[in-house]
Design a protein around this nucleic acid. Structure first.
Lengths: 155, 155
DNA sequence: TATTACATGTTGCATTTGTAACATAAATAT
DNA sequence: ATATTTATGTTACAAATGCAACATGTAATA
């Protein structure tokens, strides 16, 4: 009697990966359009994380956006070059670290983009009831927690 | 009265993107370990799609794995070089196209990896009830359909 | 028939990303 | 006190990816 192993493409993981690809393609198109290529989706997310977590160093930021230190540094290089953030040295556990904050320009810019992103986020949810949205968010967050325990991010 | 725009990082989209990053990191580690770097997660997924969709040409495959033709072609180059698939010319709408099929070796290899992937997929679901799993899959598939309509994949 | 558009796959180059190593300095161990 | 480990950020090179263009052949159109 042969064991019936299900196809990977029927798994939840595959669905999420496909959704992520869609989101990536759309994000790239969307941002390149509404910002004239001045801001990438990843840069946008990073700014939001910086805003929600003031006074963190680069490595802490890396842990939050789940990217390694090199990549995180490069994102910040780009944001700094565009004048959207400012970097400054500071101490953390008696160690010199680099922290960052939004500039006036960055803040204004970010507010503007954030507003323009809303309609898209709403569109995605239109097919779902409020209750479904809540349920989906809850399940996704649980899944994220499971993954956070299993997966070690190289930071 | 200021409008209260929610943070992007509180959105469902952000959660999914983070989960996807976790899955990517883990997939890379996992596959590089159990296959000694011989197979990437993307190659594995591609093989599964090929198996589930026999007799398709490269472009049809590209549409299914949501990658452009260049990238799809390169994945197939790699799989062919490893002797896991065979490519052959065929006709589709009076047009010469390239199709592909698993080799004996590829089939055996794939079955083996598939079995080893199962425990991981199970682990991810452990925290959820069967009912929750069903619900989550259903919601994700709906979301995927919404995205499939909105996002045009450049193939 | 000539021309234009579409479908399919590939190539070449620029950009992005990943990996390993380096640099610095503090904490810890010997 | 000296050596080793840990934390943080950067640099340099290799690998992967994206994008535009090409190549070929069919369909559609003028």
């Amino acid at each position: 009697m042969t064991k019936n192993v299900p196809h990977f493409t029927d798994s939840m993981v595959y669905s999420i990966e496909q959704i992520a690809i869609y989101l990536e393609i759309h994000g790239k198109n969307f941002f390149s359009q509404i910002t004239n290529g001045e801001l990438t989706p990843e840069e946008f997310r990073t700014i939001d994380v910086i805003l929600c977590n003031p006074n963190i160093c680069q490595r802490d930021l890396a842990k939050l956006i789940l990217r390694d230190r090199v990549r995180t540094g490069r994102i910040l290089d780009a944001l700094e070059a565009k004048g959207l953030i400012r970097r400054f040295g500071d101490m953390k556990n008696k160690r010199l670290v680099k922290k960052m904050e939004l500039t006036e320009k960055g803040n204004k810019y970010f507010q503007d983009i954030t507003k323009r992103v809303q309609p898209y986020l709403v569109t995605l949810c239109e097919k779902f009831s409020d209750k479904q949205i809540v349920e989906l968010k809850k399940l996704l967050n649980s899944l994220k927690e499971v993954l956070a325990e299993i997966v070690k991010v190289p930071v």
